[in-house]
Design a protein around this nucleic acid. Sequence first.
DNA 1: GCAAAAATGTAGAACGCTACACGTAGAACA
DNA 2: TGTTCTACGTGTAGCGTTCTACATTTTTGC
Lengths: 345, 345
Amino acid sequence: MQKKTGPRTPRITIREVASDAGVSVAAVSKVLRDAYGVSEALRAKVQASMEKLNYRPLASARGLRGRTYTIGLLLPDLRNPFFADIFDGVTSALARTQYQAMQGISVTASELVDAMIDRQMDGLILIGPNEMAERISEIAHRVPLVLIGHHEPGDESFDTVNNDDQLGARLVVRHLHANGYRRIAMISLARASTVVSQRELGYRLEMVDHGLGSDTLIIRSTQVLRDVQLAVRRLLESDNRPDAIFCWTDLIAIEAISVATELGVSIPHDVAIVGYDNTMYCDFAQHRLTSVDQSGELLGIQAARLLVERIEGRTAPEHFVVTPRIVARASSAKSSRTSKSGQDR
Amino acid sequence: MQKKTGPRTPRITIREVASDAGVSVAAVSKVLRDAYGVSEALRAKVQASMEKLNYRPLASARGLRGRTYTIGLLLPDLRNPFFADIFDGVTSALARTQYQAMQGISVTASELVDAMIDRQMDGLILIGPNEMAERISEIAHRVPLVLIGHHEPGDESFDTVNNDDQLGARLVVRHLHANGYRRIAMISLARASTVVSQRELGYRLEMVDHGLGSDTLIIRSTQVLRDVQLAVRRLLESDNRPDAIFCWTDLIAIEAISVATELGVSIPHDVAIVGYDNTMYCDFAQHRLTSVDQSGELLGIQAARLLVERIEGRTAPEHFVVTPRIVARASSAKSSRTSKSGQDR
DNA sequence: GCAAAAATGTAGAACGCTACACGTAGAACA
DNA sequence: TGTTCTACGTGTAGCGTTCTACATTTTTGC
């Protein structure tokens, strides 16, 4: 009969550090948290022992009394490269603190949020949550919370970090219009989200502002590759094909480029394509995708900062907003054709 | 003076469930872990109370005594879409169990591993770790461990899940050779890793097998976009430009396509490009990238299965290996030119 | 019908840490 | 000299679970 568990090396505890340093457990704890009332001499002794024994505090035990120094970052998925930018921001902001980020990945964040609260996360950052307002406020009452990509302040109990999605969408339409495009369609997300509806709103309003109200066309698709392809194909093969497609995120735009390429539809000659998020893929020569930059890294940095502030006691809500800017590339270069329905305002 | 923390709703504890159900705390715990010695009647009572009070066990407290039912998945980065496939596999395998996965993201997993052990993860899955063998075995002695993408069984204390990287690289060379390519270069990773060196080895051996030993050329680059671009540019602008480039991962291949496009080098006419991992981007019409499929999802599923087995007591190591297969697409279509240095074995 | 065995339930001691409540000693002040 | 502060340390009660040891009840075997 083998022993069930391998010979796991046992953990050094605070007690062993204390006895090694010849001080009380409480003293070691104070050093750890650098709490008030520790002499330099004691601190040095304790730190030497911690070093020597390679001591690391156990998060579970800390969690039972106070903080775990862990924050949870919830991402909707792992395929949209935009989230990598946000992640970089969060990481760099947290690097100087003693907090550690752990990621959870799930479109429907709800169960994962519970799981993270069960695991005593000191705070949570949610990206593009599709929870109803009520549920969000409930979460915020259980744990410090910052939302990235959520446009309903609604409650005093959490912070938000956003770019101005409505403006971003307006910029896209304005840019396309300036470059001679008129029949501008939008591919949006089937699942409801305040971000997406802001982008839809901006698109609509700006279309109307340019007298293109009757050309407004929003197609909603899930994120599933198949559905996106179908949506794009339907657009490109329709009788009155749009001369430009605004995709709510770069990933979709790249898929649109794929479908267009496949159908022999030339970009931007036959159809212009614009994305959102200005991810690394936009720059690739096979894409040259015009997109809206909202600096994911900045959003991440701000979110992390706000969350730490909240964990450490702030109660007044803050709402950080970035102004997006359009980054023009070849996928929406000036149209060579004369505009067909060009009643310009 | 405001109160420092908001009115956080307090947690329901096992004690409250016990008193609500009119049983002992120990009884509730038994139900929770479904341990031996619980009557149906008691179980029903307890479950009703748990439901009613919306009780959720606190992971920290559990961790202090036994399991946290959390496993850690460590990804090297968030930009390589291959990891999303692995993640999907892990998630789907874990869905039926009561374990929750939390992700950590870092090229140099080392500190993150410690952080996860501090947080009482029941087990860890490491992807493509660049730790030395010694460190890995040390980790394995502290926590159940499965490695994805690591070719040194070395120790009895952990499991591995791999595809046959050496074979995968051979398949690439074989395929390119069959399609008329001879001057095949490889872009590899600067940072050491057993996966990458297996791919290099396979490439070298197969080149030699085809009598192309003198055309063997390996360029090593970091993952930084800038470096990759430089490496590709140098290759494409060199006097004796290779007629095919094998990139160690799809992401690099896509960047290579970008550089080639930018330089006006046609694919596959002037140069063929092949990647590895067969990620979703390969299928896009702007890429049509030939790649090696190693089914990330399957790797993820197996890794999760092995880890759970290990957590639940298995001690004998297991090593799961997938046979890779090449997926040919347009980026390496048959060369139209006559082979120039074609001394075919 | 009675002993033994099996089934079911409970009490309570940890697990590793934090933080409150104190104790002590020296400095500052009157 | 006494008194009050301040700075520095320590003892110890939990935090919410798990799990061993034990008590009690029910079932089984003869």
